[in-house]
Design a protein around this nucleic acid. Structure first.
Lengths: 233, 233
DNA sequence: GGCAGTACTTGAACACAGTGCAAGTCCCTT
DNA sequence: AAGGGACTTGCACTGTGTTCAAGTACTGCC
């Protein structure tokens, strides 16, 4: 495992692994150095700063998402491709929940994201959205998926926090639930949801995402047609 | 300005102000203490930890958003109310861009958010979404607005970073643009967007948000009706 | 083979962060 | 007046990003 000389790719790879395993607050230069079998400060030869490293890692993961073929993508039948693309993004963000935190605090605009964005834009142009509307449609879906990932990130962070508390994780969990229940007690609708949520916990998030995505795509189509009739008027 | 004794409310208020002005990485206990005219460690008597404080501040701002009257909200005419509510959330997140970062790294479930969530849920129930569908519809809109705020947070963070660099902010900005242009150069669609974006910079984000929101609401209505016909079949 | 220079690596150090601790200071109650 | 609780303070400890001077090792050249 320990190499005598480091490379940028190795560092980025290790950083992504560490971030996946420990999250944003688990990434520090000494831990990264240890994982690489090198001193913490050795990283600084290959990378300007920690922020640079995060930007590098944050861009790298965009390359993981598969780009659907757009040959069969037409204004009459574009939703399957759009769904594939959104699902790909969703899965990537689920694998790397830290990305949304990095995204919110740094500007992320590297080649990996550019590759994704370009294809995404092409998709909505092929789907019949013209000019700025293609941008807006692509942004709407992107935004929805990103927003969903915020919740995922929060959950992942919470899970790790509970893990870190070790023994009394279950008790901590119970306390949190009790507090939530107490807060919700004055809000009848929330209390009802809290009780049903305990039953189908785990399956719900995916359904909610799929439902929302379907709604967004359906809505975009209706807006596209509305825009068309607007422009031709 | 200096008080002889602190209160929780004062501390939370000051924390929100500091977060609004300096962002997440500008909030530290010594700076907060100075703003309060007290020693940094004095805060710890009123608040368990920095994370607790952020949770407190992060919940407090939810109370700022106005809750629309639901009397006139019906399955035939619910979108104005939903738009109001989403706009309120959007405005609040724009005022407090740090909230999305806090949201992504801590679990936020206090009374302020509960108040909002309950009303939001009530709205979608009044709009004719039944059972879990009301949850999913509310979540879809919430998620979209939240996702939008991620971009806002990133922009605010970038702006502050440029400010911090002081004199050569303009140069830094230019460098960033040049780099983006270089990255985009191999992606024809992105390059075109970058050029048009330079023209109508500033007005675009609001339009994009409004367009996306319209699409989401339209899509939800179509999905609601589809679900109805599904259930009655 | 020796030599220089380049490409890294290292350990010690600095500045600043969150936070625990013991020792205050004030004010209110009895 | 005395005591105690509410609150504040300064100090110090740990962990973090980052810098820097000092290495080490490899490369190509004479």
């Amino acid at each position: 495992m320990p190499r005598d000389t480091l490379t940028r790719e190795q560092i980025v790879h290790a950083a992504v692994e560490l971030l996946d395993a420990e999250g944003m607050e688990g990434l520090n230069m000494r831990a990264l150095g240890k994982r690489l079998g090198a001193a913490a400060t050795a990283v600084y030869w290959h990378v300007g700063s920690k922020d640079d490293l995060i930007a590098l890692a944050g861009d790298h993961v965009w390359n993981e998402i598969a780009l659907p073929d757009l040959q069969r993508c037409s204004p009459d039948d574009w939703r399957p491709a759009a769904t594939d693309m959104a699902d790909g993004l969703h899965a990537m963000l689920t694998r790397h929940p830290w990305l949304v935190q990095a995204f919110g605090s740094l500007l992320m605009a590297g080649p990996g994201k550019a590759r994704h964005d370009d294809h995404n834009l092409a998709l909505y142009e092929a789907a019949g959205f013209t000019g700025a509307r293609a941008d807006q449609a692509a942004a709407a879906v992107f935004t929805f998926v990103l927003g969903n990932a915020v919740g995922t990130a929060a959950a992942a962070s919470l899970t790790r926090k509970l893990d870190r508390e070790g023994d009394n994780a279950a008790q901590s969990m119970r306390e949190g639930m009790a507090k939530a229940r107490e807060v919700a007690s004055s809000f009848p609708r929330l209390r009802a949801r809290l009780e049903t949520a305990a039953a189908d916990y785990g399956a719900a998030p995916d359904d909610t995402f799929a439902f929302g995505l379907r709604a967004v795509l359906a809505g975009l189509e209706s807006q596209r047609d509305a825009a068309d009739s607007f422009e031709s008027a």
